[in-house]
């Protein structure tokens, strides 16, 4: 007779064991920061420096996410819904930075913005190198290819026949996009926003190259971890790290929570497993 839960399904057992190993590994990582950092957390919030870096990080990550989305949504639309010459090549160029180390990306930004072009911008009042703008720029450049790829994939997954039907019912391309494509990729877009935002918060390499690490000036949370560790203030370093961790956890929960919504659109809402 077949048992309901067969313990002898080696394949399932194998996957479960591997999962447990992964869980132990990740929770150790998280615990290390939390246990070490928690005692300093209260103190950290009174420290002007940590408060400054929280504000700077939240501000720059938010602005860079907005810029990324504003650039990525039209680009992803063009890449998936229009035809123009050398599209494949364009897509490769756009996603090329995905494979580049951030340090190198930061270096090329530094080269561009310390050139005459950058100096001209600076004289017109737009400072990049060693400035807040530079942090936003670094985060945007690092995140943009990711964001474009995610949104492109989301748009690709929308059935183009639905857009065709919408068009045959009288909707212009813009209306088709607003009423069909965008709502149907809503979850993916929200997830991408959160992801871009938390990646912006965690950006370090490119930022360091472009704006350096100056206390109370270009000190983001990650820079704060680095600066404090370098000067031997482990406590402050841990506190900043814990703040980053908390923000990441919150965004992770929000992402998961969004993934669970919209069940009324399906028959499967009450069915957990079959």
């Amino acid at each position: 007779m077949r048992k309901r839960f067969s313990v002898f399904d080696f394949f399932e057992l194998f996957t479960i064991i591997i999962t447990i190993i992964v869980i132990i590994f990740s929770s150790t990582l998280i615990l290390a920061i939390v246990l070490k950092g928690l005692p300093y957390l209260g103190e950290a919030f009174y420290s002007e420096e940590v408060r400054f870096s929280i504000k700077l990080s939240l501000y720059t990550a938010t602005i860079s996410t907005v810029i990324c989305m504003a650039l990525a949504i039209p680009t992803a639309y063009a890449l998936t819904r229009t035809s123009f010459p050398f599209k494949k090549l364009c897509q490769i160029i756009i996603e090329l930075p995905l494979s580049m180390p951030y340090l190198v990306l930061g270096l090329s930004l530094l080269i561009i913005f310390s050139s005459d072009f950058g100096k001209a911008l600076k004289s017109m009042g737009f400072k990049v190198v060693f400035d807040k703008n530079g942090i936003i720029l670094a985060q945007t450049v690092v995140n943009l290819p990711y964001v474009i790829r995610f949104i492109r994939t989301a748009f690709e997954e929308v059935d183009e026949r639905l857009e065709f039907i919408s068009g045959s019912l009288g909707a212009t391309k813009w209306e088709r996009f607003i009423t069909i494509t965008l709502p149907l990729s809503k979850n993916a877009i929200i997830t991408t926003i959160i992801l871009a935002w938390s990646r912006g918060l965690g950006e370090f390499g490119a930022t360091l190259m472009l704006v350096g690490a100056t206390r109370m000036k270009t000190e983001t949370l990650t820079t704060s971890v680095y600066l404090n560790l370098a000067t031997g203030d482990t406590g402050a370093s841990m506190a900043s790290a814990t703040v980053i961790l908390i923000i990441s956890l919150i965004s992770l929960f929000v992402t998961n929570w969004i993934g669970k919504k919209n069940t009324q659109e399906s028959r499967m809402k009450d069915v957990k497993s079959w």
């Binding site: 059935d159 026949r161 065709f164 045959s168 909707a171 209306e175 069909i180």
Partner: peptide, 18 residues
């Protein structure tokens, strides 16, 4: 497309799921 005034009923219905 939006000016063709065609009503199209797809085999798999193509309803807007959202």
């Amino acid at each position: 497309l939006e000016k063709r005034e065609i009503g199209f009923v797809y085999q798999d219905f193509g309803l807007f799921p959202h």
